[in-house]
Amino acid sequence: METIHIPAEAVRIISTSSKGDQSKWRVSDQWVKQNTRGYEGQAEVLASLVLTHSTLPEKDYVKYYPCEIVLPDGERSIGCYSHDFRGKLQEVTLERLFEANFTSSDSILNDKSLSTGEKFEQIMQQVQDFTGLDVRVDIARLLAFDALILNEDRHTNNILFLYNPVEKSWQLAPIFDNGLSLLSDEKDYAPGKPLTILKRKVKAKPFNSSFSKQHALYTEAAFIHKQRLLETIESSTIDFGRAKQVLLSQLNNPSFKHLFIEGSETND
């Protein structure tokens, strides 16, 4: 595991999630994140490992790596790091995109008269109107991935777009920030309790609290090489802790069979 020393001049950035704050630092071109509620770093690394065994090109997701963090005062902790993907592009979250156009996603997401699919379509149409991008398949695939890893933090500030002010063009940012997945929050999902019970407690975001209803939005081609992923997990020297158990349980759930490329789901 790599050790990253946080320079005294590095500014601690408090990143806010639906579960509270997490400390992170920008060190050169790296973003370093500290575990706060459990094993977010291990979950982040394992989630990105899933994506490296998918059909997505590398530019479409962020790779995370485990690390030990050494603070200027000598305090040590565990976390993960990634490389900055933004370059000179401007970050605009889904929520800020709506706000910049003098509206809010709340009126759609909180409308109980709308089905999950109707909420999804209305939000996606608004995004297309604002940016010219049709990201329906990309976001539906993201939600299917979230269901597989039990990501409970895909709120509207965790779906990101990048704006090029020179070319005045938009693009969907790579998949990032998957730390609150795989039951990594040990404060809410206590170690030692059966996974079957804990998994039922996890709620999805943003279109429905049900993972199954959100991942049903994805009806395109399978995109995960399951068998290759299993082989990599088993040969990895990284201690993923409970995150590994949770992912293996999810990979063996028949509900996700349509996500796995034919022939990659054998030898269960």
Rank of each mutant, 00 (worst) to 15 (best):
residue 200 R to Y: 01
residue 40 E to W: 02
residue 256 F to Y: 15
residue 179 G to L: 04
residue 235 S to N: 01
residue 49 L to T: 10
residue 221 A to W: 01
residue 217 L to K: 09
residue 144 A to T: 00
residue 91 E to K: 13
residue 164 N to Q: 10
residue 197 I to R: 02
residue 246 V to H: 02
residue 251 L to R: 07
residue 137 V to A: 12
residue 62 V to S: 00
residue 13 I to A: 06
residue 156 T to E: 14
residue 8 A to L: 15
residue 109 L to A: 03
residue 231 E to W: 12
residue 163 Y to D: 00
residue 32 V to T: 10
residue 242 R to Q: 10
residue 172 L to R: 08
residue 161 F to T: 04
residue 242 R to P: 08
residue 251 L to H: 00
residue 248 L to G: 05
residue 155 H to Q: 14
residue 83 H to A: 05
residue 114 L to N: 03
residue 120 F to C: 03
residue 177 D to Y: 06
residue 169 S to T: 14
residue 261 I to S: 12
residue 2 E to N: 09
residue 70 V to P: 01
residue 179 G to H: 03
residue 122 Q to M: 10
residue 232 T to V: 07
residue 215 H to G: 03
residue 235 S to M: 07
residue 123 I to W: 09
residue 266 T to K: 14
residue 89 L to S: 12
residue 149 I to A: 05
residue 213 K to E: 09
residue 144 A to S: 10
residue 268 D to R: 08
residue 138 D to V: 00
residue 31 W to M: 06
residue 24 K to T: 10
residue 250 Q to W: 00
residue 197 I to V: 11
residue 199 K to Y: 03
residue 113 S to G: 05
residue 80 C to R: 00
residue 49 L to S: 09
residue 210 S to W: 05
residue 151 N to C: 01
residue 139 I to R: 01
residue 30 Q to D: 08
residue 136 R to L: 06
residue 107 S to Y: 11
residue 90 Q to V: 14
residue 233 I to N: 06
residue 247 L to D: 08
residue 131 T to E: 01
residue 87 G to D: 04
residue 68 E to A: 09
residue 57 P to F: 04
residue 254 P to L: 11
residue 99 E to I: 15
residue 159 I to H: 02
residue 30 Q to P: 00
residue 167 E to N: 08
residue 35 N to M: 09
residue 71 L to G: 00
residue 206 P to I: 01
residue 173 A to S: 14
residue 252 N to S: 05
residue 197 I to G: 00
residue 157 N to V: 04
residue 243 A to F: 02
residue 172 L to E: 05
residue 239 D to S: 15
residue 256 F to H: 11
residue 223 F to I: 01
residue 148 L to Q: 02
residue 21 D to M: 08
residue 3 T to L: 13
residue 176 F to I: 15
residue 68 E to M: 03
residue 69 I to H: 09
residue 59 K to W: 04
residue 176 F to E: 02
residue 136 R to Y: 05
residue 194 P to R: 03
residue 97 L to T: 09
residue 225 H to C: 07
residue 20 G to F: 12
residue 118 E to L: 11
residue 33 K to A: 07
residue 190 A to S: 07
residue 152 E to R: 02
residue 175 I to K: 01
residue 175 I to M: 05
residue 4 I to Y: 01
residue 128 Q to G: 01
residue 239 D to G: 02
residue 1 M to W: 08
residue 254 P to D: 10
residue 26 R to E: 13
residue 84 D to H: 15
residue 82 S to R: 04
residue 190 A to R: 13
residue 216 A to W: 04
residue 152 E to K: 06
residue 65 Y to F: 10
residue 72 P to Q: 10
residue 241 G to Q: 06
residue 118 E to R: 11
residue 1 M to V: 13
residue 230 L to G: 06
residue 212 S to K: 15
residue 40 E to S: 11
residue 268 D to K: 15
residue 16 T to L: 14
residue 135 V to S: 05
residue 265 E to W: 14
residue 95 E to G: 09
residue 239 D to C: 03
residue 81 Y to S: 08
residue 253 N to F: 04
residue 19 K to H: 06
residue 264 S to H: 08
residue 18 S to I: 11
residue 224 I to N: 03
residue 96 R to G: 08
residue 143 L to C: 05
residue 214 Q to W: 12
residue 124 M to C: 12
residue 227 Q to K: 15
residue 95 E to P: 01
residue 190 A to K: 14
residue 35 N to Q: 13
residue 263 G to M: 13
residue 47 A to C: 14
residue 247 L to N: 13
residue 69 I to G: 00
residue 178 N to M: 05
residue 207 F to P: 02
residue 160 L to V: 12
residue 58 E to L: 10
